[in-house]
Amino acid sequence: MFYPNSPQTSPQLTQIPYGQQYAMMQRQIQQPYHPFATTEPQARLYPYHYQGPIQQEQGGFITQQSTAASPQYVQMRVTPVDQSIMSGYPNQTANGSSSSSFNYNIHPQQQQQQQQQQQQLRHHAMPVGSVPLQDDRYRKQLIVNYLAPDVTSTDLHELFSRFGELDGARIIYDKQTNMSKGYGFVYFCHAEDAKEAVERMSGYEFHGKWLKVGYSTNPLNIVPSNSSPYVHAGSRGAAG
């Protein structure tokens, strides 16, 4: 039997160049792979992502010199942007860049009308829970959420009447099932009393439920100042 490094198959040491006398086997001759043993700084910083320098080929596509990437890492192929796409944008300079302001050559009167329309939209648009300043009635009506099913309009009136005089209180019921929808409205005579009720009743436990109280901004629920107070009856038909 002959071994790869046996004296019968191995040459004389004098015939082997210096430095390879003890590297006779194939696994010894093959050098191990060192990912950080390279002179390129990109490979030292990113050993798993770097795959060699990027070269520009004919046709405008950018390719990489090395083989496919590892399945664990996804390499994105980048193509140059066609400058003709950006030619339609206004205020574009000769080098292809555009300024931040756009001039669509709008007539001054049209621009003024658009600004007025935007101001009107901001004036009428009102986020949930906010209180408008032009109508004091919005500051007097509250919406009470997360009410228990057994709470009546009379219970709601008695709960909030300790903060001040009320114009009314009612629970909203479903017309088909005649069941409470879980929320109601309270109408105060003074805005200061309503503000105190919002601050003190939010998070209050009532009939096993934690109440959420806020201003009601729905104009359909506003009680006119010259109208008669609501009837605080315990029956659902009268309260709904």
Rank of each mutant, 00 (worst) to 15 (best):
Y46A: 08
V223H: 11
K195C: 07
E196I: 12
Y50E: 12
G19F: 13
P7G: 08
T152R: 10
R122N: 09
V231D: 12
R236G: 07
I62W: 15
Y46I: 15
P17R: 08
S98V: 09
S225M: 14
G203N: 15
A148R: 04
V223A: 05
Y230W: 11
Q28H: 06
S153G: 01
R162V: 03
S84W: 14
I29M: 15
T177L: 04
P149R: 05
S101K: 15
F163P: 15
R27N: 15
Y3F: 12
F185K: 09
V144H: 15
A197K: 00
Q111F: 15
L13D: 03
Y230H: 08
G129F: 10
I54P: 00
P219H: 00
A94E: 13
V78P: 07
P53M: 06
S84A: 01
H232E: 13
G240N: 02
V198Y: 03
A191D: 11
R27T: 09
T93K: 10
R137G: 09
M126G: 06
R77S: 14
V78L: 12
Q114D: 03
F102R: 08
P229G: 13
Q118S: 05
V81A: 11
A191W: 00
Y215R: 06
T79C: 13
R170G: 01
Q112S: 09
P32F: 05
E165I: 10
Q21D: 11
S66L: 12
I62L: 04
T39M: 13
L220S: 05
Q12G: 01
G214I: 05
Q116V: 13
H49I: 13
D150S: 12
I172A: 00
P32S: 09
Q26L: 11
G182N: 15
N103T: 12
Q42C: 11
L45P: 01
P127V: 11
S202Y: 05
Q118G: 08
K181Y: 12
H34R: 13
A197F: 14
T38G: 04
C189W: 13
S225A: 02
N145D: 01
Q51P: 03
Y173S: 01
P224Q: 11
V151M: 09
I172H: 02
Y215K: 06
W210C: 02
Q141V: 09
N103K: 08
S235I: 03
R162T: 12
S216F: 11
P53C: 08
Q72M: 15
P224T: 14
Q58F: 15
N218C: 13
Y215V: 02
H107L: 07
Y18G: 01
Q26R: 04
S225G: 12
T154K: 07
R170P: 13
S98N: 03
T152P: 10
M25Q: 07
L121P: 00
H123W: 13
V78Q: 12
Y22N: 04
M76V: 07
Y204I: 06
F160D: 10
F160Q: 00
Y230K: 09
Q141Y: 14
T217E: 04
L147R: 12
F188G: 05
K175H: 04
K212A: 07
P47K: 01
L156G: 05
S130C: 09
E165F: 09
H49A: 07
A94W: 06
Y18T: 03
T14A: 07
R200L: 13
Q12A: 14
T93H: 01
A194W: 08
A69H: 11
F206Y: 03
A94F: 11
P149T: 03
G240I: 13
L13R: 06
G234Q: 06
Q31G: 05
Q21C: 00
G19R: 10
Q83H: 10
Q28S: 14
T67E: 12
V231F: 08
Y89Q: 02
S100H: 13
T14Q: 01
S99T: 10
Q114G: 04
R27C: 15
Q51R: 03
Y46Q: 11
E57A: 03
A148P: 03
Y104L: 02
E205N: 13
F163T: 09
T39N: 00
